[in-house]
Nucleic acid binder design. Sequence first.
DNA 1: CGATATCGGTTTCAAATTGAAACCGTGCAG
DNA 2: CTGCACGGTTTCAATTTGAAACCGATATCG
Lengths: 175, 175
Amino acid sequence: MGKRISHKDSLCGVARPLDAIGDWWSLLIVRDAFDGLRRFGEFQKSLGLAKNILSARLRNLVAHGIVDIVPAAEGGPYQEYELTEKGRGLFLVLAALRQWGEDFFFAPDEAHVLLADKKSGLPVRRLELRARDGRVLGPADTIVRRPPSMARVELARPQVRTASNRRDFKPRTRK
Amino acid sequence: MGKRISHKDSLCGVARPLDAIGDWWSLLIVRDAFDGLRRFGEFQKSLGLAKNILSARLRNLVAHGIVDIVPAAEGGPYQEYELTEKGRGLFLVLAALRQWGEDFFFAPDEAHVLLADKKSGLPVRRLELRARDGRVLGPADTIVRRPPSMARVELARPQVRTASNRRDFKPRTRK
DNA sequence: CGATATCGGTTTCAAATTGAAACCGTGCAG
DNA sequence: CTGCACGGTTTCAATTTGAAACCGATATCG
């Protein structure tokens, strides 16, 4: 789970999300949640993963504020999992991932499901990144910019514990 | 790497991509590639991961057609890694992930880099999913639709090898 | 030429994670 | 009380990850 944050990525807007959902199952759980699944057993049946893993993943998603545990839904004795606002924010990530998947992971003649507008039934438009003025932006048209007042101090953050910075570190001797 | 494809997800447009890039490092490598990194050592320095892991990840990305190994760039004896068309297709996935990160992973007062239009220097527009007719679509406005001619046959696919479907399976006896 | 360094990995081993199945506690239904 | 489904936790083995050592090819210096 909480993998290490590598030296320079503690401030990167890509690495932090990956710490929360950067494993195989988490995004699939979220996708299923978007599809209306709410119960432990539903997720397990849908995804076919081991119960301990599902348990761990759900705990992680809850810890990251992506899903909430709601006490009961229809009065039953069980709890349910539902997406938080933050979790619902993953909608576009899933959409982008799905479009990429549709573009590159299916043979041209291979049938596959695709994302459609519920009202019209037609496939959705292709996502596109636009500038303020409306121009469509490609990879070469963007930069990651540091906003004006970004202090250059390295923010105090929990020191990563690697073998070589532990105080008791001793290089292993090879046999 | 090639994790298992769970029973019903062999045809899902989300699960297949995750098989290719669904681990902590792969997307970060791709992000660095977008930032212009090309050499093994550059990736390693930027990400701070172990060389064996980087090696494995790059091999996986190459195997999935996301990066290419190009023989030499400036005549040197070394090879470089560059994004393929498929790899460049991840641009929007990264953009979506970054926007989500910017929205939810930074304290309101916490400075962070953000994605900007290179020409104007202004932050990019928020991504949005739209229907053909231009309506902005939220999670509740979409369905995954099976295109007309989707055969209902379970496609022949490499049988997943789990403990319980191996021929020599024997339930373990507890101590 | 020989010594040393750098790059791009592979190998080795230990530690962490994942996964299958067994086990467990609670709340029903009969 | 008996059985059973749900929602997990525990146990243990197998796989993956990671740190550091090692290696081969080329380049650089003296």
